[in-house]
Design a protein around this nucleic acid. Structure first.
Lengths: 113, 113
DNA sequence: AACCTTGTTCAAAATATATTGAACTATTGA
DNA sequence: TCAATAGTTCAATATATTTTGAACAAGGTT
């Protein structure tokens, strides 16, 4: 349904640029921690606002990093691990090894003083 | 002389963001192709203008990707390969494997019609 | 000294990216 | 059908990044 690039359309500069954002790296970390599971967007709501997440998921999908499939009113997010491994051997492993340990970027909300 | 981050100051989001730019990825590719050699800025002049290169080298240096040392009026650029390998095992290898094969981004100059 | 080569710096302009909130769509379930 | 839930879209704003060119600095050479 949603457009996803094929494996050979996935480009290195694009992937790196997309993962060079703290929020998206945190999303990757969450996905990696629960690899195998497909997570709904709402699982990431502590990382950013709903509409901002929507934006980041679109970036990651367009870069070929995640797959997004509608299931009812929800959308299930999963890592395109095999595709990325095929395209850029070792890249994801090395990024995840670090991303998994990274503290999530603070979601800057109005703080109660 | 110029400020370089120490190994443990090198951050993953920062490195990915810096390498997620086609010009800088091309610089990395050039450095990797002639690994070991320290190259002067002028070796990269077909990738961008002098002042733009200066900007990109600063970004790469601040991210801990390259080392820049003055030698006379020139500055020698070299890859911080060992440091990056220590900090993010496998990352550089996997990026370079692809970066080396990437066509350099066109330097957009006024074309003669 | 005068000069060339190499690269830097600065401010401006151009461009791109991230974030917000409000209004919206779609699906589910009662 | 009505309401609730999950997520999207849009326009506006905020912020950051890239690129340019002109003026500059530092070293080397004669």
């Amino acid at each position: 349904m949603l457009p996803h690039p094929t494996v050979d359309q996935i480009s290195l500069p694009h992937v790196l640029a997309v993962l060079g954002d703290p929020t998206r790296l945190a999303i990757l970390g969450d996905l990696a921690r629960r690899e195998g599971t497909a997570l709904a967007c709402s699982n990431f709501i502590d990382l950013a606002s709903k509409s901002n997440l929507s934006y980041h998921f679109a970036k990651m999908r367009e870069a070929g990093i995640i797959r997004v499939e509608p299931r009812g009113t929800a959308r299930l997010i999963s890592l395109r691990r095999a595709d990325l491994d095929a395209r850029f051997p070792g890249l994801l492993d090395s990024i995840i090894a670090t991303a998994i340990t990274l503290p999530p970027p603070e979601k800057r909300l109005a703080t109660t003083a």
